[in-house]
């Protein structure tokens, strides 16, 4: 009698595997189904109504009323006086945003090319300063930038000022210097903005770049693009949405900040935030004017952002390099 060894295909094993998969996913579907319910959004809607919509309405009401409570457009009539403050705020916020892009984009690109483990570590390092109070961090910059601060003391001990004074020794009317004026300048304010808001530029860009499908990059290489062209024609346009959210997250807080300018300029660089704060807490107490300025600032920011996002949508056509 011939022996017929028992032979098996792996059909049975495959079937069991498929069955196990099915049962694992069925309850999951129900789980997510329940999470899709609209009612889960209600707490946030309530929050939004109470703490965002109503305050904005109140700002608008205050902006169009006088101290007597009657309607008046008068709060806006003197607005032109503050044009320099508006201009300075927008300009410094713009500078800070541009510098954040220049520093943040390459950083985000470099981070997103690392191994996932290194990426996680770097992101934590990036977030680390945020565990320390915002005020403390800005105070720290004060002690660095002061005329007798760390930076100037370091430069002095290196003999930098002696050297400069020696070079100008013969110049008539030259007064020897003992320090650089670092604090109380526009530069110090921009530095504070960049320092505080840089992570908000890097994070959204990095998160967009890591999501780019590697096979899209391979496709570009495959079609003949060297790494420079791959960046210009694929990675850059696909990461613009991250840049746009980064710009939003840097520009908006930068344009309205008052702590940074107050601490790093000691009031010499007045920004919109300082101006508004003065109307609510300072001697110039005038919440109606403060509301009017806030309202104008809000409108300017909304316009800036919508122009930005329009640019973002149009990039399909815009980036035909």
């Amino acid at each position: 009698m011939t022996r017929f060894p028992l032979r098996r295909t792996n059909a049975g094993r495959r079937m069991r595997r498929a069955g196990a998969l099915k049962s694992a996913f069925t309850p999951a579907a129900g789980f997510f189904g329940r999470f899709r319910r609209q009612s889960f959004a209600y707490p946030y809607v309530l929050w939004l109504a109470l703490f965002v919509v109503i305050p904005i309405i109140l700002i608008a009401v205050y902006a169009f009323t006088g101290a007597d409570g009657g309607f008046t457009p008068g709060n806006f009539s003197g607005m032109m006086d503050y044009a320099p403050v508006f201009g300075r705020s927008l300009w410094l916020a713009f500078l800070a945003t541009v510098i954040c892009i220049i520093i943040g984009y390459p950083a985000a690109l470099a981070i997103s090319r690392m191994r996932p483990r290194s990426q996680r570590i770097l992101i934590v390092l990036l977030m680390l300063p945020m565990w320390i109070n915002f005020l403390l961090r800005t105070y720290a910059w004060m002690s660095l930038l002061e005329n007798t601060g760390l930076i100037n003391r370091l430069l002095a001990s290196l003999g930098v000022f002696d050297l400069i004074n020696a070079l100008h020794a013969g110049t008539p009317g030259y007064a020897p210097i003992t320090h650089f004026r670092l604090i109380n300048t526009d530069g110090a304010v921009v530095l504070g903005m960049v320092y505080n808001y840089l992570p908000f530029m890097i994070l959204p860009i990095q998160s967009v770049i890591v999501k780019i499908d590697p096979s899209v990059i391979e496709a570009a290489q495959d079609l003949g693009a060297d790494s420079r062209l791959v960046f210009r024609k694929v990675i850059l346009p696909l990461s613009l949405s991250g840049v746009i959210s980064g710009v939003t997250m840097v520009f908006v807080p930068a344009v309205s900040t008052f702590v940074i300018s107050k601490l790093l300029s000691n009031g010499t660089v007045m920004l919109l935030g300082d101006l508004i704060e003065m109307q609510f807490t300072g001697a110039a107490y005038n919440p109606h004017l403060g509301s009017a300025i806030s309202l104008i600032m809000m409108i300017i920011v909304v316009i800036c952002m919508s122009v930005m996002s329009r640019f973002g949508e149009g990039r399909e056509q815009a980036v035909r390099l």
Partner: peptide
């Protein structure tokens, strides 16, 4: 020889089209 210098082109598994460009581009 890197991919971009080979006279070989690829149709990828998930197509890998450039979502930021139209069909022509």
């Amino acid at each position: 020889v890197p991919p971009h210098k080979r006279r070989i082109n690829t149709v990828f598994q998930k197509y890998a089209l450039f979502t930021h460009l139209n069909v022509f581009e």
